[in-house]
C-alpha cells in the first residue's frame, strides 16, 4: 500500500476525535491515529493484532482523578478566552470540552480540562488560573469533575 497523504491522515484524526468523544486528549488521538496509519500502511501485523486486542477496551488514558472543570464568570472583555486557554496550555492541561456564553455582557465559560499530563500540582493550577481570572476581573472556580457527576447524575 502506498503511503497515506496528509489530508488522509487528518481525516483519520478527525474521525478518531469524534469516536473518542469526551476522551479526545492529544495523547489519545495521537495514539489512535498512529495505530490506524500503521495498520493502513500495512507496517507490521503486530500493530494490527494490538489494535484488535484494544478494540473493546475503553480508551481512557487520562490519569484517574485528574479531570477538572474550570468555570469563570464576570464582565466581558477582549482576550479572556485567550488568556485562560494559553495559561492552561502553559500548565500542560488539555482542553477536552469547552462551552461559553455571553449573556448581556456577562461572560460565562466552562472548560473541561484533563490535567493528567500536567506536572503541576492541583493547588497550583487552581491558584494560577485564579490569578489569570483576576487580571480580567473574572471569578474563576476550579473544581474536580466528580462533584458534578455526583450531584447531577443518579
Amino acid at each position: 500500500m502506498s503511503r497515506l497523504n496528509e489530508a488522509e491522515i487528518r481525516r483519520i484524526a478527525e474521525l478518531a476525535v469524534k469516536q473518542l468523544e469526551g476522551q479526545a486528549t492529544a495523547a489519545n488521538v495521537e495514539k489512535v491515529v498512529h495505530e490506524a496509519v500503521q495498520r493502513m500502511s500495512g507496517q507490521g501485523a503486530a500493530a494490527a493484532a494490538r489494535h484488535e486486542r484494544m478494540k473493546n477496551v475503553p480508551v481512557n488514558n487520562h490519569a484517574k482523578g485528574q479531570r477538572i472543570i474550570l468555570t469563570a464568570f464576570g464582565a466581558n472583555s477582549i482576550g479572556i478566552l485567550a488568556g485562560l486557554t494559553s495559561e492552561l496550555a502553559a500548565l500542560k492541561c488539555d482542553i477536552v470540552d469547552l462551552s461559553q456564553k455571553i449573556m448581556q455582557d456577562f461572560f460565562t465559560i466552562m472548560i473541561l480540562v484533563d490535567a493528567g499530563n500536567s506536572d503541576v500540582a492541583y493547588e497550583q493550577i487552581r491558584e494560577r488560573m485564579a490569578r489569570v481570572g483576576e487580571s480580567f476581573n473574572l471569578k474563576v472556580i476550579v473544581q474536580h469533575e466528580d462533584i458534578f457527576k455526583t450531584m447531577h447524575r443518579v
Binding site: T71, M110, L112, I147, M151
Partner: peptide, 9 residues
C-alpha cells in the same frame, strides 16, 4: 456535564 448543571452547583 451540561453547563446549566455546573452553573447551578
Amino acid at each position: 456535564i451540561e453547563l446549566p448543571e455546573i452553573l447551578e452547583t
